[in-house]
Design a binder for these strands. Sequence first.
DNA 1: TTCTCATATGAATATATGTTCATATGTCAC
DNA 2: GTGACATATGAACATATATTCATATGAGAA
Lengths: 121, 121
Amino acid sequence: MKTDKDDIQTCGYTIIHENVVSDVRKKMLADETIMSLAEFFKVFGDPTRLNILYALSISEMCVCDLAALLTMSQSAISHQLKVLRQARLIKYRRDGKVIYYSLDDDHIRQVFAQGLAHVNE
Amino acid sequence: MKTDKDDIQTCGYTIIHENVVSDVRKKMLADETIMSLAEFFKVFGDPTRLNILYALSISEMCVCDLAALLTMSQSAISHQLKVLRQARLIKYRRDGKVIYYSLDDDHIRQVFAQGLAHVNE
DNA sequence: TTCTCATATGAATATATGTTCATATGTCAC
DNA sequence: GTGACATATGAACATATATTCATATGAGAA
């Protein structure tokens, strides 16, 4: 029967605390869950998208309004809106030629709040 | 005195709803705040860092333990730990040759919870 | 239909980012 | 001091990503 010592190499994978590692391993999140979480937070990791989300948390807006507000090209805004749509964070409605975007997730404001709590600590 | 119509061009910056835009503009976050927020969330936007943070939310761990747990190189883990340190999300203590990392932010678990709420909806 | 305008999207480009590899640092044991 | 080991770090590389540019789509007006 092998002892702990036998497993210790150069830290190619020295498990210094086997019990801790195996214990934590049991409680880790599933890979897909981690992946989904990372995708979710990645969306918040860009200033443009944060600005869009924050603006939409104040009022429904059309693409042109957002472009004017953020002084960015319509194309850039549209591309980011697509990302936000795919993340199921925003929804839209069409009125003639104009498309109005708004938030489609209840957690967004809370996520903002928690981020701000960290930033303003 | 110019009317709204005068401002409408090709949408190079057509402000379709001037009142909405000026109204929202007043309530927007400061640029630095948005930047800090983006930096904060960007840290959560990577599976490796999420795994590390989640593991540390269960137990304090050393670098080798984390490498073994996540089946990644010590170097890769160290680099990500540096990112997490710079984001002030983790702290460490030294015990001989071993360095133990742990969470250094109370919001982390809540941020996880909110992310999971979105993912599991 | 044809024109205009609001929006969407594909391709290209520049920049950011995660991992690896090699090496450096720091601590303990001898 | 020297050697072993845990960790840190700089450079290189490959991949991801945000914006721009050009163009396409879709809807109302004439």
